[in-house]
């Protein structure tokens, strides 16, 4: 009997080892471990054994059964793993086939540039103001110290809606300075982006409608050094750390002292090239300390309060930011252009 068990064990283990498919494995299971299987048949002979032999033989029989069951499991697992492997292999895809298209809309590049500027100033405690584009000449000019006779008031430069030149398309976002002074409590920190209009024919660098962003601070002890510090920060945020700027004297009716800020040409690093027209610098914005007369006209005492303001064109900033060659692209809205951003 002992020999029988050993034989079953050897045969069965070898059979499980070399089995090829699930059906054959099941046949083997029935053959060796089934109710009418070979192992059961051997065990049925246990009754014939003496009481002394029985425990030892029983133990041996159980060992054989456990070994067979273990081998069966192993064989079955191996087979499942092989089957899965085959299935996965069959499911292989070509990963270079394009993904199913999800159409995502794009932000207009000009507004992307504006968003960046807004974020910078909001971080410094500025509020964003919106105001009318059809504006009173009084706010666009008079209240900004550009008196009757200032060249920008000419009909050749500014769009008007009445013969008295009273109502116009704002030529700058600066009337928002006046609207802020008239409506907000001091101190004030605002930026005011928006559309502005000038009588310029359309070409690669001009458009009769374009966008500006105005910034203004009025507080006690505000200095020109603060203006420079803030605008330098703006330049670094827009064009990268270490951006070199310079400030030049300039003239605006509503600031005194006035300045323009240039950014060192990114192409040539200041040596002079076609991009900067050989100057090494690119004009970015105009700014200055708010003219005391402008404060006075808003009922703000220039002895007590001071402030600064700046205005910058957004199209040119966007053009530079994204290396766009022609301003007309901004307003043509060609989908092939828009999808680049």
């Amino acid at each position: 009997m002992k020999e029988q068990l050993a034989k079953i064990r050897a045969e069965a283990l070898s059979a499980f080892e070399s089995v090829k498919d699930a059906a054959a494995l099941d046949e083997l299971r029935v053959k060796y471990l089934g109710k009418k299987g070979e192992l059961t048949a051997v065990l049925k002979q246990m009754g014939k054994l003496s009481a002394e032999e029985r425990p030892a033989m029983g133990q041996l029989a159980n060992e054989v059964r456990a070994a067979l069951e273990g081998a069966l499991d192993a064989a079955s697992q191996k087979m499942e793993a092989a089957a899965l492997e085959l299935k996965l292999k069959a499911e292989t895809v070509d990963v270079t086939i394009p993904g199913r298209q999800v159409q995502v809309g794009r932000r207009h590049p000009m507004n992307t540039a504006l968003d960046e500027i807004k974020e910078i100033f909001i971080g410094m405690g500025f509020t964003v103001l919106d105001g009318p584009e059809i504006e009173l000449a009084e706010l666009n000019f008079d209240r900004l110290n550009a008196e009757e006779g200032h060249p920008s008031r000419d009909w050749s430069d500014t769009f008007y809606f009445d013969e008295d030149s009273r109502v116009m398309l704002r030529s700058q976002t600066s009337p928002m300075q006046v609207r802020a002074m008239d409506s907000m409590p001091l101190p004030i920190r605002i930026i005011a982006p928006g559309r502005v209009y000038r009588k310029d024919e359309v070409d690669a660098t001009h458009s009769p409608m374009f966008h500006q962003v105005e910034g203004m601070v009025i507080d006690k002890n505000v200095t020109m050094a603060d203006l420079k510090g803030t605008l330098n920060l703006l330049a670094e945020e827009l064009f990268g750390k270490g951006t070199v700027t310079r400030f030049r004297p300039h003239h605006f009716p509503f600031t005194e002292p006035s300045c323009e800020m240039d950014v060192q040409c990114h192409k040539c690093g200041g040596a002079g090239c076609p991009t900067c027209k050989g100057e090494g610098w690119i004009e970015l914005l105009g700014a200055g300390m708010i003219h005391p007369r402008v404060l006075e006209m808003a009922g703000i005492d220039p002895e007590e309060w001071s402030g600064w303001a700046f205005g910058m064109g957004l199209e040119r900033t966007a053009l530079r930011r994204f290396k766009i060659a022609d301003m007309r692209l901004i307003f043509e809205n060609d989908i092939r252009f828009l999808e680049q951003f």
Partner: peptide
């Protein structure tokens, strides 16, 4: 002041960040 600044040099004016009362910025 502008005459002084012009010949002192705009680029010799220091650069400082704003002090003063903090204002609450943000979107409406």
């Amino acid at each position: 002041a502008e005459e002084v600044a012009r010949f002192h040099g705009y680029n010799n004016i220091p650069t400082t960040l704003m002090r003063g009362q903090t204002t609450q910025g943000g979107y409406s």
